[in-house]
Design a binder for these strands. Structure first.
Lengths: 204, 204, 204, 204
DNA sequence: CATGAATGAGTTTTCATTCAT
DNA sequence: GATGAATGAAAACTCATTCAT
């Protein structure tokens, strides 16, 4: 169960001092990432995580002092990765118009979500904790910033709304696991929808 | 934890035979609905549900023989309500064009989601069981059917995509609990986005 | 679960004052008897008993204030019936030799056990309570008494041993529910075994 | 309550990998064995078992993942032991006549039942599951096989009947816990009875 | 570092029994 | 008498976390 309040100063994973340790941590984190993505945070047990990584439960706790801490470590890393990609995207999109930015954002978010299924499984957990909220806030700011550049500029308020909407839109195809055709179609549909929306705004 | 496979013959709530029983069942279901909406299925305890309803744990189990059964009872009722509203909507939208239908659908879904927060908390649970899947399938069909009517008609494949997309879109504002201004804005933005999308298709 | 010590003064079923009540009691007792025989004391629930009798749980408690009391009421009645049959048997066997008595006893016990499957399910419950012990003691005395009559007489100590052995022997076929052929064969085998045993003793 | 159907793939006890674990498992199994023998399967609590072994409830479940699994683990071990003894007996009895075999079987079963009181408490539980049934079937076959050897041979059908009867006979003295004199007498009486029975058959 | 045994609070569920109508 | 709603102690079982080796 997710603890109601996860303070910001959650103990972070101890930095391993040896190569062996580094591999271990990576294997454990990978195992956790897989399981969180497959079954969600609640349904995943620490024992299972350790087992899939071929480690003892004690070893898991050696590096990740808490289940919530483990989740945060993974989420933080994924968020960092996403943040980097969004930063890079921003450089590439200077000068483009809003619709083009939206297209590019779609690609970036789509790729990221598809390759990091644990991200959305961990960032949008029912019950609200400060920490996750701040993760989302940062993402929101970065995406909003993307829309501040173009000419004509997207109004700040709308940029914020888009920053809320677009990531959640990208989650939609994720649920369609067994229906690849439909999933791809949905992704396209969403992309077109957003493009048109921003294009129409620009014409006004 | 949600059991992986929820068979169709989940124990249904026992019908109370006395007035007192009816009130109790209503109170218990209300309590459960609230808590599921607030904290999600996993984080909600049967003990807590009973306590909030001012009943003993045994009383809760008297009417709802399992936690999953309780969730299904609530979800089924909500789904029924939604289904009814979608049926009613269909009558009202015959003759309208796709964009107008989308607008109307938005109102219906928006109202429903806002007044039934437990619905989305219960219908979209990680791990997939047949039962929930069928709930979603029914919804999908009903929404797709809405788009089959207009002139020019929305292609069936697209109607299906929309039937997947729209309900998930409507979940987006739900997360913005503390930010009413933003939430309303997001809802508007989504509505406009969908309208334009369908309008553009129609013009082609 | 059987309470460890069941005092001898367990509340007996209240005598119904009307015909309706009498029928009710009979139906409830019959239902309980069936269920105890089918699934054993522990696995049978009071709710189930009431349900099978078509009565409300409250009604069941109206007449039988306790599950253990209900079991005792049934057992007492069955024991009474058995006692009567054993008394009758005694009259019929005066003058017979031990082997003939054993044969007759076999018939009586065999019939009784077959027609009262709840009896052995209730009288031989793990954990010992005084009450059941006294039921068995009475049975033991009556059977031992049967063997006191013949000429040459069975020694009292042996009579007691037989009084322990024979009822338990008669339980053996009961377990062979699905194998009628074998069950009948076993019954015959046991009968022959006992006959020979007593015949051999007499010859010495 | 004993579950109606105990599938063959009941979770088996996890093998301890450290010495400390081995001791614990032994202590827990011993505690369970005692309690099952004393009060029967139903009346014995997992909490009680853990407590008597001086362990926490979680520790018990660490090694024995369900109550039924624990019972089966114990029963399986006892059944194995009995099977071994019956095999050994068979070697020793080749060439003997039926009555002598019966005598030897009596000793073996008598010793076993007396030293493994949990065995009969666990193998003969009301409600039938496949697993226990197979335990009994194996025993039946082994005992029947004992009687196939002698000259003159016991007819197969009778051997099967005896294989049903003898183990149940051996349970009779077990109930006479407080009456040692009587218990020993009963055991002797049964032994003599069976001997004579088989002797008489041989003479025919 | 690594292991896996150990813990115990907390969760779902059952059921004999009581009580208001 | 009759009903069925209500109770709550107790049972089986889980799992994050700690600790001895």
């Amino acid at each position: 169960m997710v603890s109601e309040k996860a303070s910001a100063k959650m103990p972070q994973p101890r930095a391993p001092r040896q190569k062996r340790g580094h591999d271990r941590v990576a294997a454990l984190a990978a195992s956790a990432t897989e399981l969180f993505a497959e079954k969600g945070y609640d349904a995943t047990t620490m024992t299972e995580i350790a087992a899939r990584a071929g480690a003892a439960i004690g070893t898991l706790y050696l590096f990740f002092p808490t289940k919530e801490g483990l989740a945060q470590a993974i989420l933080a890393e994924h968020a960092e990765e996403l943040s980097t990609r969004l930063d890079a995207l921003r450089e590439r999109t200077s000068g483009l118009d809003a619709a083009a930015i939206a297209d590019a954002l779609f690609s970036v978010l789509g790729d990221f979500m598809a390759s990091h299924p644990a991200y959305s499984a961990l960032v949008d957990i029912p019950g609200d904790d400060v920490w996750r909220r701040s993760m989302r806030a940062r993402r929101r700011q970065q995406i909003a910033a993307l829309f501040a550049g173009p000419e004509p500029a997207v109004p700040p308020a709308q940029a914020e709304r888009l920053a809320v909407i677009v990531p959640q839109m990208m989650r939609i195809p994720l649920a369609l696991v067994g229906e690849k055709r439909l999933r791809d179609g949905v992704l396209e549909e969403l992309k077109l929808m957003l493009s048109r929306h921003l294009g129409a705004d620009a014409e006004r």
